[in-house]
Design a binder for these strands. Structure first.
Length: 221
DNA sequence: AACCAGGAGACAT
DNA sequence: ATGTCTCATGGT
């Protein structure tokens, strides 16, 4: 099954998702760290706290007392860890000279830089690359593994880099694919939340025509 | 009331 | 290299 075909089906069914939900690139980066293994609605509360305290800013985050930062992050869970991670990230961000300097880096160098911040792993780095810096990077998350494993496109347990290379090679790595990668990942998340979880063997979802497991267990529960 | 959510790091094997 | 544990709130 072609990845383009799956994309078309998702887009036709759900429509454009216009991600990332965030106003500025920096806010996108903050959200990427805070949403680690966490529901987005909770992240929004934490970001609202930061904004209410004029702390949606790298310098403010670095300068504020860690206890206080953690208290703002509380609704997004793991607040002690995330306070450190966000702080690490902001220190790196400032040390690199800010957004303009980072935006001038080629994607591989920028990615390596992000990955060497403690608290920024492959998925968070790729969220930032794609949604804040508009680089043609395909984000792999647990939903992507689950959905495409169910479709029989991949096995599911492959290493992160293996899957990323798989999707990028088959879709193309050109800069013109930024929009495609952006929308594709957003649609995957949307689909995973809506259809794939409620009906693990859904015969009615928009991918049923290309989904082997839909034929096997055709009942609705 | 268990279970999970747009992961990552530390640590043991 | 590959598993397992921990971090923590908020919504089903």
């Amino acid at each position: 099954m072609e990845l383009r075909d799956i994309y078309r089906r998702l887009l036709r069914h759900y429509g454009p998702q216009s991600w990332w939900p965030g106003e500025t690139p920096f806010e996108v980066m903050v959200g990427a760290v805070l949403t680690q293994n966490t529901a987005w609605e909770n992240v929004e509360k934490a970001i609202a706290n930061l904004r209410a305290n004029d702390a949606l800013d790298p310098r403010a985050i670095v300068e504020v007392h860690p206890k206080r930062l953690a208290s703002w992050l509380r609704p997004s869970g793991y607040f002690n860890v995330k306070a450190k991670r966000l702080r690490n990230f902001c220190r790196w961000y400032l040390a690199q000279g800010g957004e303009a300097e980072l935006a001038a880096l080629p994607t591989p160098a920028l990615r390596r830089g992000l990955l060497h911040v403690s608290g920024v792993g492959p998925e968070t780095a790729d969220d930032i690359l794609l949604y804040a810096f508009e680089r043609p990077v395909f984000v792999i998350d647990a939903y992507t593994r689950r959905i495409f494993a169910r479709l029989g496109v991949v096995e599911g347990g492959e290493d992160y880099e293996v899957l990323r290379a798989f999707f990028e090679e088959r879709l193309g790595r050109g800069r013109r694919n930024v929009g495609l990668f952006n929308e594709y990942h957003a649609l995957i998340v949307r689909h995973a939340k809506q259809a794939c979880r409620v009906r693990p063997h859904c015969a009615h979802c928009c991918l049923a025509a290309v989904c082997p497991s839909a034929e096997v267990a055709g009942e609705d529960s």
